[in-house]
């Protein structure tokens, strides 16, 4: 009998497309990541580097190359922050930006945690995609 214990056995991993994850699931995952980062990084009193998460679009229902989510501090008011969505046209020459929420750290976290936020963001993305399609 040959024991295969303690062997650093590495099988070949075949990278395939993640077709199982829909746009909605990807967005839910991104919102979760943004929430986690916002909880740690966003400060009401001091400077922090803007939080950015993005995904390259593979959903044919959305007319865009990529989507980005940003949280940044208001330069005029340290205690306020903006959460916004940006969408990049397939030509990469046009960008549409839409602010989603403006408020304190708690306001941003509350929004990201809310179960209805994902649906609102999906609606926003659909509308922004329509705008890009018109260009």
């Amino acid at each position: 009998m040959i024991k295969l214990n303690n062997l650093n056995f590495k099988s070949a991993k075949v990278k395939g497309k993640d077709l199982s994850m829909t746009t909605e699931k990807k967005l839910a995952q991104i919102l979760k990541e943004i929430y986690n980062r916002a909880e740690c990084e966003v400060k009401d009193s001091t400077y922090y580097r803007p939080i950015n998460e993005h995904l390259v679009n593979k959903d044919k229902q959305l007319y865009c190359r990529a989507i980005a989510f940003n949280i940044s501090k208001d330069a005029e008011n340290k205690a306020k922050h903006t959460f916004e969505i940006l969408m990049l046209h397939p030509t990469m020459q046009i960008e549409v930006k839409r602010p989603i929420i403006y408020g304190s750290k708690d306001d941003i976290l509350k929004f990201l945690k809310d179960n209805n936020s994902l649906k609102q963001i999906m609606d926003d993305l659909t509308q922004m995609s329509e705008k890009l399609l018109n260009k």
Binding site: A68, N70, E95
Partner: peptide, 22 residues
């Protein structure tokens, strides 16, 4: 932000910062 009403701001430029989209 002040009004709570949202309208889109669309920029067209060859110099868009692609880093924020990865």
């Amino acid at each position: 932000m002040a009004t709570g009403e949202r309208f889109d701001i669309i920029t067209c430029s060859e110099n868009i910062d692609l880093a924020k989209y990865g």
